[in-house]
Design a binder for these strands. Structure first.
Ligand SMILES: [Zn+2]
Ligand SMILES: [Zn+2]
Ligand SMILES: [Zn+2]
Ligand SMILES: [Zn+2]
Lengths: 159, 159
DNA sequence: CCCGTTATGTTATAAAGTAACAATTGTTAT
DNA sequence: ATAACAATTGTTACTTTATAACATAACGGG
């Protein structure tokens, strides 16, 4: 196990990282986009677009659905967030440097999410695609289940 | 490469297979549910719930969204179809005998879908989950890209 | 400063999914 | 048979998620 400086875990670090990434790329992480990213990182569980919109409105900012969806589109393009299609929610990417398909463990009960980055899975899928002459554009892996905490909770209740 | 009698590719076979499966399980593949499954299998590309509803109405049958969603829920429970979360569509399962997480190659351009059943991918994900003490309930792999046909089409247009 | 580009504000609407209750059909036990 | 119960389907109304279309504002190079 080696430390990996590119792994982001806390909001502040993620935002700084995102800012420098966008600068390097010549893309514009505007105030709105940065704020949406911050809202996502500040949440313990992934948020839906309308939940993000609610927070923006609490900020006092005007906004309608397109405001949020456009910011989300940008962040998705930049690989700064992932979309969990099975739940219609968005979560911050912990490895925004390298574009990659998302791999997630999603807790059915508490909604918490753990991002995997298993290169073997990605390669296996690429290989499967290649032998079918299928050109891969993006990959999405979503594993639904129960996190350790929620398993304990359920067991405790069983007694 | 060995032939596998449990692989279904055409609607008629899939329906027969589904009927016998449900009979063995003591679950009821009613006319409505069977018809929804047939509609899904008859379509060259996965269908959304409302597209299925349109076909039902063409049949002359009454129906509202819940009619379709309930039938879809049943078919999902029985493992007779999969839901592609990234597109909000449903597709017939080619291996309904063994419950499994879905693994799909989805063509961005024509919408056609190829179902993979790579046990190594499933095992790898289970292993990743296990070493995080995460209890797996279901898996979903969606690879978005371009099928061979659509690659050729795009190339032809490039000339 | 001017002008083209990009980003955001705004209104309205489409698409996907569900809650709640009524009516019907199927099943089981007298 | 028929009453009682369970499962399925019909029906109405609604919530949530996402996008289209157009107006306004901010940015950035000459
Ligand atoms: Zn990521
Ligand atoms: Zn949990
Ligand atoms: Zn399947
Ligand atoms: Zn195609």
């Amino acid at each position: 196990m080696s430390a990996d400086s590119s792994l982001t875990f806390d909001p502040r670090q993620a935002l700084e990282h995102a800012a420098s990434l966008c600068e390097r790329r010549g893309t514009r992480l505007t105030e709105l986009r940065k704020r949406v990213l911050e809202i996502i990182w500040n949440s313990p569980t992934p948020l839906g677009a309308y939940a993000i919109l609610d927070v923006l409105r609490d900020d006092g900012r005007q906004g309608a659905p397109p405001t949020v969806y456009r910011a989300l589109d940008f962040l998705l393009e930049q690989g700064l967030i992932h979309r969990l299609a099975s739940l219609n929610v968005f979560t911050g990417c912990r490895r925004p440097d390298s574009f990659h398909g998302g791999q997630f463990l999603i807790c059915r009960d508490c909604g918490q999410v753990d991002e995997l980055t298993n290169p073997t899975v990605e390669e296996l899928l690429r290989a499967e695609a290649a032998c079918r002459r299928f050109e891969v554009l993006s990959q999405m892996v979503e594993v639904l289940g129960r996190c350790p905490d929620c398993q304990r909770g359920a067991k405790a209740r069983d007694r």
